[in-house]
Amino acid sequence: MAATFSSQNRTLISSAALNRPKGRIAYWTVLTLIVAVFTLVFLGPLYWMVIGGFKSAQEVVANPPTFIPKHPQPSNYHTAWSQLKIARLLFNTLYYAFGALAFQLVFDVAAAYAISKLRPVFGKLILGGMLATLMIPAAVLIVPQYMTVLKLPVVHFNLIGTPWAIWLPTVANGFNIFLLKRFFDSIPEDLMHAAAIDGASPLRTLWSIVLPMSRPILGVVSIFAVVNVWKDFLWPMLVEPDPKQQPINIGINSLSQGVPENVLIAALAISAVPTLLIFLLFQRNIMSGLTAGSLKG
């Protein structure tokens, strides 16, 4: 009987070739080179930034550059922390980030729950419109957003220089709503019907059943919300002119006049630490949350 061959078992290199000594050597050589190249590409700039903070001002601009500081100066980081008021800028950034997170959790969860479980008449059309906004470059929306917060429609409030100018544009996040909606779709309808039979209102069902089951995706949305505010540059620079109230990326830029380049690089390295820690600590949560809800059980 002829052996059947499944297309799912096809690979670039056959298992028989990999079992040979030359095949294993070639495989591990290529794999090691690929991993080394991608590691260098992704970690190279980070390494360059960190060691730049240890160099002197002359060594930073030296040509050819040095890959290891000749005379390390750890005091550059202390100078950056005190001279650029990093502690205050970090507090501002946390304030904006967690404020945006609170609004996103309230409004994005409500929008996703309504589209997924309450199913309004034009729910699919609304979701399609939200997803269509993801196709629009963020830079295109800068001018209309700025005109909106400059004179808020109906109430005619000027939000420039207030945290609301940073918080409100982050609320309508089509990507987060889509992630939440996909996860809510995976929650069995039997649970929803059982809650309705017991007399639970849609709001009570959301609070008592849906949200406790949605912790993985809520964690992912929370991380995305914090990181998006943390790394944003152009919008906070436009709507928050006071350097003392700016987030860290903008504050470093505003307070960097007359600061040596090595101290400025040290400040940038400090500003990158929180987001790196968030990724390293929660990378498993990010991956599990993104894949959660992709298959219905």
Score class of each variant (00 low, 15 high):
1 M>K: 12
6 S>M: 06
6 S>E: 09
8 Q>M: 14
9 N>M: 08
15 S>T: 15
23 G>V: 07
29 T>R: 10
32 T>R: 06
33 L>M: 08
33 L>P: 06
34 I>E: 06
44 G>E: 06
44 G>R: 04
46 L>D: 06
46 L>N: 12
48 W>C: 10
50 V>I: 08
53 G>V: 00
61 V>G: 13
62 A>F: 15
65 P>I: 02
65 P>C: 01
67 F>K: 13
87 A>Q: 07
91 F>Y: 15
92 N>G: 02
92 N>R: 00
93 T>Y: 00
96 Y>F: 14
102 A>K: 01
105 L>G: 06
106 V>Y: 09
107 F>M: 10
111 A>C: 12
125 L>R: 10
126 I>Y: 11
132 A>Y: 07
139 A>H: 14
142 I>L: 06
143 V>H: 10
152 L>W: 08
163 P>A: 01
167 W>R: 00
167 W>A: 04
167 W>Y: 05
170 T>K: 09
174 G>V: 04
180 L>H: 03
181 K>F: 09
183 F>S: 00
192 M>E: 11
194 A>M: 05
194 A>S: 12
195 A>D: 04
197 I>Q: 09
198 D>A: 08
198 D>V: 08
199 G>E: 03
199 G>S: 05
202 P>R: 03
207 W>N: 11
207 W>Y: 12
210 V>P: 04
218 L>F: 05
220 V>I: 08
224 F>S: 11
224 F>Y: 14
225 A>H: 03
231 K>N: 11
233 F>G: 12
236 P>M: 10
239 V>K: 00
239 V>E: 02
241 P>L: 01
247 P>T: 01
248 I>C: 06
248 I>N: 09
250 I>L: 12
251 G>D: 00
252 I>V: 09
252 I>L: 13
253 N>Q: 13
254 S>I: 13
256 S>V: 05
258 G>T: 07
258 G>F: 08
263 V>K: 07
271 S>D: 15
273 V>D: 03
281 L>W: 11
285 N>Q: 14
287 M>H: 11
294 S>A: 11
295 L>P: 12
